[in-house]
Design a protein around this nucleic acid. Structure first.
Lengths: 144, 144
DNA sequence: GTACGTGCAAACAGTTTGCATCATG
DNA sequence: CATGATGCAAACTGTTTGCACGTAC
């Protein structure tokens, strides 16, 4: 896993914006959008231009420190590179995001698909939508 | 499956744009974006404003005649409502789209997830990326 | 004449680009 | 001083909205 400190050896600085972005994503429980990050940085007194944030995010993805995900909201979200590739389930009520690892099942699927279709599979994108345990309870109470 | 003719009984007209959109999606081998559709309609001599296309697509989704998919390109694509819910594999080389049905496997996964996390799952989004059989051959030839 | 349908211009969100400037090895 | 980092305004893409007009039962 690429570290912030690795950037230095590649001739890049550890600027405050850069460090702050990686740290924010590291501690965030849910993936954040570029505009989320601009807002959070601002709240913390660190005024970083949105252009810079977009550029940094792109850079950090290229450098392998963070990754980009698409939850189908019409924008991208970013998260710290996880220990392993994984998947998300999004609560349709409260937007909570939980991570899942379905890699084993997906690899089996991919094998099947290659056998059946001849496609060579390079990657996948899997997400689930539903209600988180909390919202399930709330929904049940409202209906009852 | 909702039909074009069903719209009439619900008090909607079968306008030329509406019919053309459904027919185009019906015969298309790959999901099309709103702008694709504007262009194709234009080529066929049917000048329909993009606003109308966006509004029609939204309407047709609501009416259950077509469905909206997101292949992660930063826009939406539309396809005729398939006989069953299904998934896509996109060729990263030529953008060919092939449909797959992984519903059985996904339902098993969803059961597991509910058991493990307490999330109640309402839906999912699964797509694969890779090389279609044709592009695999081309890639092999280039490398060799 | 009351919904529905359409077109056009403008707005909008998310993102990217051009350009000038600053900072640092 | 060369490269990387930053800010600002403007552009751009996909999409939506406001409003006026047109159409059909």
């Amino acid at each position: 896993m690429t570290q912030l400190t690795d950037l230095k050896s590649r001739g890049h600085s550890l600027t405050k914006a850069r460090k702050a972005l990686v740290e924010l994503l590291d501690v965030s429980q849910k993936p954040l959008s570029a505009m989320d990050l601009v807002a959070v940085l601002f709240e913390r007194g660190l005024k970083v231009n949105k252009t810079t944030v977009y550029r940094e995010l792109k850079f950090l993805v290229e450098q392998g420190l963070i990754c980009e995900i698409d939850l189908g909201e019409g924008n991208k979200r970013y998260e710290a590179v996880p220990t392993s590739h994984h998947h998300h389930i999004v609560c349709q009520q409260c937007n909570a995001v939980t991570c899942l690892d379905m890699e084993d099942e997906l690899h089996l699927m991919e094998q099947q698909i290659t056998d059946r279709t001849g496609f060579v599979i390079a990657g996948h994108d899997l997400k689930f939508f539903g209600l988180c345990p909390t919202c399930v309870v709330l929904a049940a109470e409202t209906t009852a």
